[in-house]
Design a protein around this nucleic acid. Structure first.
Lengths: 185, 185
DNA sequence: CGTATACGCTACGTTCGAGTCCTATAACTT
DNA sequence: AAGTTATAGGACTCGAACGTAGCGTATACG
């Protein structure tokens, strides 16, 4: 198999997300991707039939989830680590720069919606799992609903990223756990 | 003053938000607004010099905030009413349909960002005020931070609207208060 | 009733980007 | 080394939408 192919594809995929983050969905152009990837526009069309399929493929392919496998510590410690990692990830990282563009695109492109919702569901699930563990073991108040609590923890991160000028400070992410889970014993 | 002017302007403003909600920021066009407002394209340009100023003006002008003045009841009751009203408003309403478009636009257009952030800050403030009242009076746990708690309450509403297929059910908005504020006494 | 002016309509010129096609060149394969 | 194939770099067509301009009509105002 010609190694040029996969090399080119990866370069274009990365450039796709970079352009999506920098210019937004509204002014995302294949020409900008070509320039960023240092590739000819015709090359891009040789690999992807249309702009949307390019975006969808880039998202699926580059969706490595580098969430640290946090196993040690109490449930509360693990929650705080997950949250801080999450809020840090939403402060920068290529994919997070695309969040606003993806939200907008998801409204009208089913392929993008499927990716975005699936991606977030997976991220949320890791929180839910730890929360449920803590509830079952009695570490957290029994009135907690794992699904709702996960929303209360992760929601503010997205809220601050999209609805306020600045993302949620990592330090405040830790305090957030105290709000929702009650003070540490 | 010629009544035709204001009549036309209002029609165009409403159409602007409608189009923004339906088609998104990426494929928002003046021509679509003209059609929706049943107005000639040249008429729009007679009133607003550019597309962006049209959007900004429509947002500022139509930013009536019909949040019910909830005064009665305990702090907890008022919180729940505010939350349910909020989640209901985010389920439909012209402005909420524009949320994804606004998030995207705010990334690159300072005018839109200013509106969006200000709008949300005001909505959040009403929650903060009631929360602070409840904390001061001892109705809510003293470990609560009003600002963070407001984020934990409002964040999930936006999160569900943007990151999941369905908005937060109004019923779950009520449960959310229990999660964050602790069980009712 | 006469005048002013806001509007509708249509036709523009222009820009920009999608997607196609062709040729020369560079890189890989056997 | 020779043949194969992916790519670069253009030039190109096409359509969409921006924003402008001119003219006829209708509506408001005095």
């Amino acid at each position: 198999m010609d190694p040029r192919i996969e090399r080119t594809r990866q370069a274009v995929r990365h450039a796709t997300l970079a352009v999506l983050g920098q210019r937004g969905y509204a002014s995302f152009t294949v020409e900008a991707v070509a320039e960023a990837a240092r590739v000819a526009k015709s090359t891009i069309y040789r690999h992807w039939p249309t702009k949307l399929e390019l975006i969808a493929d880039a998202l699926e392919t580059l969706n490595e989830q580098p969430s640290p496998q946090v196993v040690a510590g109490s449930a509360r410690d693990r929650i705080e680590q997950l949250l801080e990692h999450l809020s840090a990830a939403f402060a920068d990282s290529v994919l997070s720069a695309c969040i606003p563009a993806l939200i907008e695109a998801a409204e009208h492109q089913p392929e993008v919606a499927e990716f975005l919702h699936g991606y977030n569901a997976r991220r949320r699930q890791s929180l839910v799992d730890v929360l449920q563990t803590g509830i079952d073991s009695g570490e957290f108040p029994c009135h907690l609903d794992a699904g709702l609590a996960a929303l209360a923890l992760i929601g503010p991160v997205i809220y601050c990223r999209t609805m306020t000028p600045d993302p949620l400070p990592v330090a405040r992410a830790g305090q957030l756990a105290t709000q929702v889970l009650g003070p540490a014993k």
